[in-house]
Amino acid sequence: MQPTNRLLRTLLPELRHLLFGLLLLSGLTAPFAWAQTPSPDTLHAQFNALREKGTGQLMDQSIYLRSTESADRMQGEVHALIDEPFEQVRQQLARAEQWCDVLILHINVKYCRAQRTAAGEELVSGVGRKFDQPLSEVHWVRFGFRVVTDRSDHLLAVLRSPTGPLGTHDYRMSVEAVPHANGQSLLRMTYSYGYGTAARWAMKTYLATLGRDKRGFSVVGKTAAGLPVTVDGVRGVVERNTLRYYLALQSHLMSHDKPGGDATRLSLQTWFDATERYAEQLREMDGPAYIAMKLKEVQRQETVAPPPPG
Rank of each mutant, 00 (worst) to 15 (best):
T264R: 11
V237F: 06
G216H: 13
K222G: 01
R277L: 11
V175F: 08
N241W: 15
R212N: 03
A263N: 13
L207V: 10
E239P: 05
R235M: 01
P259E: 08
W201E: 10
S267W: 08
P288E: 01
Q250S: 08
K222F: 11
L243I: 00
G261V: 04
T242H: 06
L266I: 12
H252Q: 06
A198I: 06
A224H: 11
E280V: 14
V158N: 12
E176C: 01
R265N: 11
M254I: 00
T197Q: 08
L268H: 04
F272K: 13
S174W: 01
D153V: 00
G211Q: 12
P162F: 14
D170A: 09
G216K: 14
R283Y: 00
T209N: 09
K258A: 14
Y193F: 07
R160D: 12
L166A: 02
Q281H: 06
G196R: 05
R235A: 07
L156Y: 00
T242V: 04
F217R: 14
R283T: 02
W201G: 04
M285D: 04
S255Y: 01
S185I: 00
Y206E: 03
A224Y: 06
A279T: 07
P228D: 01
G287T: 08
D232H: 09
L266D: 11
K222S: 06
M173R: 13
R244I: 15
Y171W: 02
M203D: 00
